[in-house]
Design a protein around this nucleic acid. Structure first.
Length: 425
RNA sequence: AGAGAGGUGGCAGAGUGGUCGAAUGCGACGGAUUCGAAAUCCGUUAUACGGGCAACCGUAUCGGGGGUUCGAAUCCCCCCCUCUCUGCCA
């Protein structure tokens, strides 16, 4: 969530940013926060002064009791009753206002970075660059859902049997390819200076709130109700929450972590066209990179992360493009997002394989993730993350783009030693 | 899952109704001493919110919530978590 101080001191910038997002009723929503904050301060002051007086009286009563002046003590007690009522009323109202204020803040999305283009939908995203050549496929080329069946490397039917739709079973060369990609991505991340983390894939409620999956996206996560734990939708959640409620020494920054985890998404209501095969799954594998850095460096860091991801795609010899998402297509919590899409030659469409974002202080504010500035004051840090990379669509593109006339699939050089084979089939 | 113990500041650990945001030790920081260091000595060392230009003042926080009381780290109730033993188990 945004900080009240930002809404107060940079109202015009916030409103301009929310307009870029096509966020409705921006002015009213911001106004409401400011009013609630005003009321909150007032109540806090009322509460504190009544409480201060009560504390003072309690001390005096203690002294009188000790000196044996029971009558004097009783006299003061009558006064505390009124004060007690005052503090109680103020405290109750304060709790209510604080809750309303928080709810109001939760409803306001992050302010987009200046470089974010205006726009309503994915059509308005800015293509930053396109890299690599789209391959010419041989006659009779197939989409990946047919290829995996023919090669018998990924089995949706078996997944249906033991779990349900969207939970495929990877078999033989298919399983080995998964493992190869995970290891390749992790090794590349280590080489680029990231620290590997292996977090739990179930998280508690507090972590869900920390990175913003809760309360609004509750329905998107699998919920293990017996223990009130959630299956992670991305490694971003546990790895970022590692630093929840922390004040980090500036010399430890930037923090650069990478982690492989399976990811679980209920994707409620989003099935239909364009989700065949590996395009959308309930469980998939992903290597995620997460960075925490000083505000003044975070956009440099974002470019650096983007460079790392692009380099992976280049080594995999996949044609890709980088998009700068427009205000209307960006995630709620992000200030700037680059999407990376690979070309899927048989489907003749771009597939999103990575999303790389700077959240600025939006997540850090909920997480209470801070550092000390040169004046020794605590300030919020910036958090960033990106997929490096999500596997299923990479696999889809590798299969489709590299299919040969003889029905085999050529694999990029860089994967050979990880797979132990150079082609599928 | 059963039984027991326990959750206090960066860490360890005292504190069982008032003068306790909290002894003491360790760590960290500043200073003295030293050519420099170690050792020693002195001092500082939580967070959030509110008020104030500031110095500073106020309030809250001893796992979380509620209660008793003029007054709660301390007493009562509920919840959460951790540890130990037993059981089960990769």
């Amino acid at each position: 969530m945004l900080q009240v101080s930002v809404l107060k001191e940079q109202t015009d910038r916030v409103l301009a940013g929310l307009t870029k997002r096509n966020f409705p009723n921006a002015e009213a929503e911001v106004q409401r926060v400011l009013e609630l904050d005003q009321r909150r301060r007032q109540l806090q002051t009322e509460h504190d002064s009544a409480q201060a007086e009560a504390n003072k009286l309690a001390q005096q009563i203690g002294a009188l009791m000790k000196s044996g002046d029971k009558a004097g003590a009783e006299e003061l007690k009558t006064r505390t009753a009124t004060l007690k009522q005052q503090t109680k009323t103020a405290a109750e109202e304060l709790t209510g206002v604080e809750k309303e204020l928080q709810d109001a803040l939760y409803r306001i999305p992050n302010v987009p970075h200046d470089s974010v283009p205006a726009g309503r939908s994915a059509d308005d995203n800015e293509v930053v660059r396109e890299v690599g050549n789209k391959p010419e496929l041989p006659g009779g080329a197939l989409p990946h859902w047919d290829l995996i069946k023919k090669l018998d490397i990924i089995d949706f039917e078996l997944g249906n049997k033991i779990t349900g739709a969207g939970f495929p079973v990877y078999k033989g060369q298919g399983a080995r390819l998964q493992r190869a990609l995970i290891n390749f991505f992790l090794d590349e991340a280590m080489a680029a200076g990231y620290t590997e983390m292996q977090p739990p894939i179930l998280i508690n409620e507090a972590s869900g709130y920390g990175t913003g999956q809760l309360p609004d996206k509750e329905g998107q996560m699998y919920h293990a109700t017996a223990d009130d734990l959630y299956l992670i939708p991305t490694a971003e959640v546990p790895i970022t929450n590692l630093y929840r409620d922390e004040i980090i020494a500036a010399e430890r920054l930037p923090i650069r972590n990478a982690g492989y985890t399976p990811c679980f998404r209920r994707e409620a209501g989003s099935w239909g066209a364009h989700v065949r095969g590996l395009n959308r799954l309930h469980q998939f594998d992903k290597v995620e990179i997460v960075e925490i850095d000083l505000p003044e460096r975070s956009y440099q860091t974002l470019e650096h992360m983007l460079g790392h991801i692009e380099q992976l795609l280049q080594k995999l010899e996949l044609p890709y493009r980088v998009l700068r998402l427009c205000g209307g297509d960006m995630g709620f919590t992000s200030a700037l997002t680059y999407d990376l899409e690979v070309w899927s030659a048989a489907q003749q469409r771009w597939l999103e394989v990575s999303s790389c974002s700077n959240f600025e202080t939006y997540q850090a504010n909920r997480l209470k993730l801070r550092y000390r500035d040169e004046n020794n004051k605590t300030q919020l840090l910036h958090t960033l993350n990106g997929s490096a990379l999500a596997l299923p669509r990479i696999v889809a593109a590798l299969l489709e783009n590299n299919q040969q006339a003889d029905g085999t699939i050529r694999l990029p050089e860089v994967l050979h030693r990880y797979c132990g084979f150079a082609q599928l089939g």
